[in-house]
């Protein structure tokens, strides 16, 4: 008789991805875990006000939203960058033939954003 098989920890790969990002940022010192749980707990409460959360997709959707919030709070990202990178990924999926690995289109929004700022200054 062997030990009980450990249950699969993540229902979907992106759950694990989101989880690992928060843990890695915490361990690198970008935020404390109590800071994370306070923000995440408040976000869960708000998300659950429209109907009870099942603890799977909706839980990790809130996790992703909390990561976005905390990155903006820390000045690591802003909404424009988050939206731009999501658009890149969306476009990459839509333009990649089925069965091929999907990579977001470069040039990177980081660079594009810097250029856009320079343009704004020039045209204002």
């Amino acid at each position: 008789m062997t030990s009980p098989t450990p249950p699969a920890p993540f229902d979907a790969p992106w759950h694990g991805q989101a989880f690992s990002l928060a843990v890695a940022l915490n361990e690198a010192g970008h935020f404390s875990w109590p800071e994370w749980t306070e923000l995440f707990g408040a976000a869960l409460k708000e998300a659950g006000s429209n109907g009870p959360l099942d603890g799977s997709d909706d839980y990790y959707t809130t996790w992703v939203a909390t990561l976005e919030t905390i990155l903006c709070q820390k000045g690591i990202a802003d909404k424009g960058l988050l939206d731009a990178m999501k658009s890149n990924w969306t476009e990459a999926f839509l333009s990649t033939p089925h069965g091929q690995p999907v990579h977001p289109e470069l040039p990177l929004p980081l660079q594009a954003k810097g250029a856009a700022r320079a343009d704004e200054g020039g045209r204002a």
Binding site: W14, A18, L25, E68, A77, L82, N88, T96, L110
Partner: peptide
């Protein structure tokens, strides 16, 4: 083309790309 992932999955991918590009993860 490839099946488009859900909105939060795309956002998770975007987060990772941003953080990797910035050298934070």
């Amino acid at each position: 083309h490839s099946l488009l992932p859900s909105d939060p999955e795309l956002r998770a991918r975007a987060l990772e790309t941003i953080l990797v590009q910035k050298g934070l993860v």
